[in-house]
Amino acid sequence: MTSGARAEIVVDLAAIRHNVRRLREIAADSLDPGVEPPKMMTVVKADGYGHGVTEVSRAAREGGADWLGAATLEEALAVRDGGDTGPLLCWLTVPGDHWGAAIERDIDVTAYSLVELAEIEAAAERLSVAARVQLKVDTGLTRGGCPAELWPALVAECRAAELRGTLRITGIWSHLACADEPDHPANDSQEKVFLEALDVARQAGLRPEVRHLANSAATVLRPSVRFDMVRCGIATYGLDPAPGVTRDLGLVPAMTVRAPLAMVKSAPAGTSVSYGHTWTADVDTRLGLVPVGYAEGLPRVAANKVEVWLNGKRRPERGIICMDQFMIDLGDDEAHEGDLVEIFGTGHDGAPTALDWARAAGTINYEVVTRIGGRLHRVHVDSERGRG
């Protein structure tokens, strides 16, 4: 544990570098000789999926990330503030956003509509520069992106703006709804719609630098949608993008959450634990208090269904997970205040992972790692370079 930390998130930057390298290998797998492999975008939105955006961005570049991706303008600007100067895309904006700040700092922005495009162009004109713009088409996720029926008008206006010199269309992209279910018919449908959208854009005269559709799951499971670039988010952090479907990908989880035992106490048979007394000891046992709770992002709904790792063994959580703390069952095993509890981590020796917590909570590993934080102290280590 870091000196003075009550509980902490430990992020191994060597795992980030390794995962980016490994995903580049996967994306290049099965290509014909002489075919250029797709570029790699590492998605660092949501503070690097809870891992720390500045540190993750740097490690991803070291691992070979050609592009970085952020959701909001604020996130993209934070990447720049952290010192990154390479290709960077953001895609989630609202009317009146400060486009000029992104354009000035060479950030690619995304347009879904003529209204967005007009705002971007106006900002570019004020700065007397050509904005770098990527277009997102809605191919069937039915979320952000230009609807197919409005696509011809959008690409035509984009080409006109290119001729005016106010912007440059650098990319065309979309997002899959069911990439983690390789047999889902939506995958074929969305790929077909995307190809049609690319054809419409080509006929309008657009020649983007990159075309991209594949997220982490599609990068692994659907080679036909790798195009010029793949976008890897959750897999970058060592977490399986399609649990139960993918083979062993050779990824390494980068995040470990841990805390020292704050207290050990006896619990005779019949003792009930925590709010609502949802668990009662049926035999004499001993309990340990872990000083982390839902204020740090642990899912309360996982109570009585998860385990942690202590002294080489999984220990079941007992009773409702509270705002600041939860209890674990030690049985007859020796344990003491200060012993280190691994709440979830790499899965070494069978220890619990973020996926274990996700399954207990009825959610996905993405949610577990991105919501963790609160009062936890985050520390970055580098097992490859002997730091931490």
Rank of each mutant, 00 (worst) to 15 (best):
E196T: 02
V306Q: 03
K265S: 14
R247A: 15
E181Q: 15
A295S: 12
G276A: 13
V308G: 11
T256F: 02
D180T: 12
R207D: 14
Y237P: 07
S272V: 06
E307Y: 01
R207M: 14
M255A: 07
T219N: 09
G312T: 13
T271M: 05
P260R: 08
P316V: 10
L198D: 00
A259S: 04
G312F: 13
V292C: 03
P241E: 10
G270S: 08
G319E: 10
S224D: 12
L249R: 04
P243N: 08
V245G: 06
F194W: 00
P268T: 09
R318G: 10
T246V: 07
M263N: 11
A186I: 07
A259R: 00
L251I: 10
L249A: 14
G250S: 06
F227V: 04
S189L: 14
K192C: 14
P185R: 04
R211I: 01
L298I: 05
K313A: 15
V273L: 11
N304K: 12
V220D: 07
A302I: 12
F227I: 05
R202N: 12
D183V: 11
G288L: 01
D199M: 04
R202G: 15
S274K: 13
V301D: 10
V257L: 08
T280W: 08
V230H: 01
A295Q: 05
D228R: 00
G276P: 13
S216L: 14
N187Y: 00
K305A: 14
P299C: 01
T219H: 05
G233H: 06
